[in-house]
């Protein structure tokens, strides 16, 4: 089953550190792994996905390039603040093709997911798609 783009479900994405107008953060949730958001130097880098409503998240799939270490935090608040940490993962380096990692989030509910890239395999990293498998409700 192909997960619908998060954007079509009313999700939004905001970045704290953004740089390249041609590769905006919206590319992360458009469901297309050919479009991407790219970091523009130094770590950490982060982006936050805001769901339209509280959503049960069992896992996320992250398609990226040159990401080394990723932390995920969440909250259930209306605001993008006061996050609690959920998990973190070290990604394997890939050469010439995207990294694709599925990360389990224990099915907890969230209104915001915060992704913090603490290190990379290069000065710049890109995130091409974050998708959330739909849970039967």
């Amino acid at each position: 089953m192909i997960d619908p783009p998060l954007s079509s479900l009313g999700a939004k994405v905001v970045v704290v550190t953004s740089g390249d107008e041609e590769h905006p953060p919206e590319n992360i949730i458009d469901g297309d792994s050919r479009t991407f958001w790219m970091s523009t130097g130094m770590f950490p880098q982060e982006f936050i996905i805001c769901f339209a409503e509280s959503t049960k998240v069992s896992a996320v799939t992250v398609d990226s390039y040159n990401v080394k270490h990723l932390k995920i935090e969440k909250n259930t608040s209306r605001y993008a603040s006061q996050f609690e940490s959920v998990t973190e993962k070290e990604f394997e380096h890939t050469d010439g093709h995207l990294q694709s990692n599925s990360i389990s989030l224990n099915g907890s509910s969230a209104t915001h997911l915060r992704f913090i890239i603490t290190s990379g395999y290069d000065h710049f990293v890109s995130v091409h798609r974050v998708s959330v498998p739909q849970l039967p409700s």
Binding site: D20, S33, M38, T40, D63, T94, H97, F124
Partner: peptide
């Protein structure tokens, strides 16, 4: 120097094959 590196890396990423 940093700007050129960025452009180089960005076009490399644009040419990546999916994972």
């Amino acid at each position: 120097t940093f700007h050129s590196l960025y452009q180089e890396r960005r076009s490399a990423i644009q040419n990546l094959s999916p994972g």
